[in-house]
């Protein structure tokens, strides 16, 4: 699946996005965030406080308990601040 990062999540990690193939026990968005945080470095920094992360699966906003199986595109980002 394709991961996309925005705003300070992108800056901490140093990537706009990447292709990932998470293990089978990574079932939800919250699992994915925890799995990425364990990579350390910028990932640990970006995902130090999962409560500050919002997500979209296949371009629809979801909560942390959303399943990721079969997703093509998952975006992780801070709460939005447009307008």
């Amino acid at each position: 699946m394709e991961l996309l990062y925005f705003a300070w999540v992108r800056e901490s990690i140093g990537l706009d996005g990447e292709r990932i193939d998470p293990p089978a026990d990574v079932r939800t968005v919250a699992d994915l965030i925890a799995w990425l945080a364990r990579r350390g470095g910028g990932y640990a920094e970006a995902f130090a406080d999962p409560a500050r992360i919002r997500a979209a699966v296949d371009q629809a906003f979801v909560q942390g308990d959303a399943a990721i199986a079969g997703a093509k595109e998952i975006a992780l980002f801070p709460p939005v601040t447009g307008g």
Binding site: A7, W8, A75, P78, P79, V80, G82
Partner: peptide
């Protein structure tokens, strides 16, 4: 302001940068 996927970052004269918090 709370639902559309935009993020604002401030740039300052002293070179400082800061993402705006929701």
């Amino acid at each position: 302001k709370t639902e559309a996927p935009f993020w604002k970052k401030e740039h300052f004269a002293d070179g400082g940068q800061c993402w705006i918090e929701a």
